[in-house]
C-alpha cells in the first residue's frame, strides 16, 4: 500500500469528518430554522467529501476495506485531524469562528489540490471547492455580522477568535510523509499558503471590527494523532454502534 498517500488522504479527510460530526450535533438546536438548515447543509457537504476521500483511501488498503472501516474503526491516535475542528460548539460565535478559520484554510488547500498529479485527489478537490467556497462565504458573513453586530455579539465573537487563534497554525503543519508527496507533486505545499491565509483572515476580522490576537503561542498535535480531551468523547459517540455491536452490517 502507498502509505504516504493513504496518510495524506486521511489528513485532509479527517478534518471534514470531525467538523461534520461537530456540526451534526447542532441539528435542531440552532438560533433559527434557517441557520439550522444551512449548517446541516455544510455538515452534509463535508460528509460527502469524507466519503469520496475514504472510498479512495480504502481502495489503497485492499479490496475488502470500506469507507466505514476507516471512519469508525480507528483508534484515537490514528485520526489525524487538526485540533481546530474538534473544538466544541461552545456558542454560535465559536461555531462560526471555527468554521471561518477552517473554511479559509480549506478553500486555499482545495484550490491547490486541484492541481495535484494524483488525478483522483484533483477531481475530489474540483468538486468540493464549489461547496467550500460557499461555506467560506457563509461563515465569513457571519463573522462580520457577529463582530460588527451588538456589543454582546462582538464580545462573544472576539472571545471565540482569541481562543481559536491558537489552533490556526497547526493547519499548516507538515508531516514527514506529506513532505515526500510534495516533491512528487501530489500533496499541496502548505507552507506556501500560510502568509496569504493570515492575510485573508486578518482582512475579514478587521472588516468585522475585531482585534487580531497577538499571541504567538500555537497548539498542535492533532495531525500527529495527539488530540485534545474532546476527541475521546467525539469518538465514543461516533463509534458507539461499531464498538457495541462489532462486525455487523447496518
Amino acid at each position: 500500500m502507498n502509505k504516504e498517500l493513504y496518510n495524506y488522504i486521511l489528513s485532509i479527510a479527517d478534518n471534514c469528518l470531525i467538523l461534520g460530526q461537530r456540526l451534526g450535533e447542532l441539528c435542531g438546536h440552532g438560533p433559527t430554522l434557517e441557520t439550522d438548515i444551512a449548517l446541516t447543509n455544510i455538515s452534509l457537504d463535508l460528509f460527502g467529501q469524507v466519503r469520496s476521500y475514504y472510498q479512495y483511501a480504502a481502495k489503497l488498503v485492499d479490496d475488502k476495506t470500506t469507507e466505514d472501516d476507516i471512519a469508525f474503526l480507528r483508534n484515537e491516535r490514528e485520526y489525524v485531524n487538526a485540533l481546530l475542528v474538534e473544538q466544541p460548539n461552545t456558542d454560535f460565535a465559536f461555531i462560526m469562528g471555527r468554521q471561518f478559520l477552517f473554511d479559509a484554510f480549506h478553500l486555499m488547500l482545495l484550490s491547490e489540490l486541484q492541481k495535484s498529479h494524483d488525478v483522483t485527489l484533483a477531481a475530489i478537490a474540483s468538486k468540493s471547492i464549489k461547496e467550500v467556497s460557499y461555506h467560506y462565504r457563509f461563515s465569513s458573513d457571519w463573522v462580520r455580522r457577529l463582530g460588527d453586530g451588538t456589543p454582546e455579539s462582538k464580545e462573544r465573537m472576539q472571545a471565540a477568535i482569541n481562543d481559536l487563534w491558537a489552533y490556526t497554525e497547526e493547519l499548516f503543519y507538515q508531516t514527514a510523509s506529506e513532505k515526500l508527496l510534495i516533491e512528487k507533486g501530489i500533496a499541496v505545499d502548505l507552507s506556501q499558503l500560510k502568509a496569504s491565509y493570515y492575510q485573508n483572515i486578518t482582512d475579514v476580522l478587521e472588516e468585522s471590527t475585531l482585534t487580531i490576537p497577538d499571541s504567538k503561542w500555537f497548539k498542535k498535535g492533532g495531525k500527529e494523532g495527539i488530540h485534545s480531551e474532546h476527541m475521546g468523547y467525539i469518538l465514543s459517540d461516533m463509534q458507539f454502534m461499531q464498538r457495541a455491536y462489532p462486525n455487523m452490517k447496518w
Partner: peptide
Amino acid sequence: SLHAADAEMALENARDVYTR
C-alpha cells in the same frame, strides 16, 4: 418565504432552504 436579517442572508437562506 423565510426569515432573514438582510438581503444577503435572505439569498443564502433561500439557497439552503429552497434549492436543496
